[in-house]
């Protein structure tokens, strides 16, 4: 039985969606209830920049993978060997 690699992206997308939702809630709370000043604005900026940093870093790593590739159940065993790398190595 063959499993497509892109199936890994489904739980990944769910986690990313949750983190995005919580990022939005955090920013909303700071924007709505924070005290006017540099603190809340700076914190919102830090949130956006650091989140984007990890997303870009992650995307760079994930884009190098051939997600259309399939893998058999037998190949899922880490020590089975014999399968080509998904990184094209």
């Amino acid at each position: 039985m063959e499993i497509p690699l892109w199936i890994l992206l489904i739980p990944f997308a769910v986690v990313v969606a949750f983190t995005l939702l919580f990022l939005f809630f955090n920013i909303y709370h700071l924007a709505r209830y924070g005290i006017v000043g540099r603190g809340a604005t700076g914190l919102i900026l830090v949130y956006c920049v650091s989140y984007l940093f990890i997303v870009i870093l992650g995307a760079t790593a994930l884009l190098n993978i051939r997600w259309t590739q399939t893998v058999s159940i037998q190949e899922l065993l880490p020590f089975s060997g014999g399968s080509p790398s998904s990184f094209g190595i």
Binding site: V16, A61, W67
Partner: peptide, 28 residues
């Protein structure tokens, strides 16, 4: 590995994003 390599990377990115959001929530 053809499967575990991408799985590890995806897990790592998801983990880092989750920790980042937990930190943000605590900071907020």
């Amino acid at each position: 590995h053809v499967f575990w390599g991408p799985a590890l990377i995806a897990t790592l990115v998801a983990y880092l994003l989750t920790i980042l959001i937990l930190t943000f929530t605590e900071l907020t």
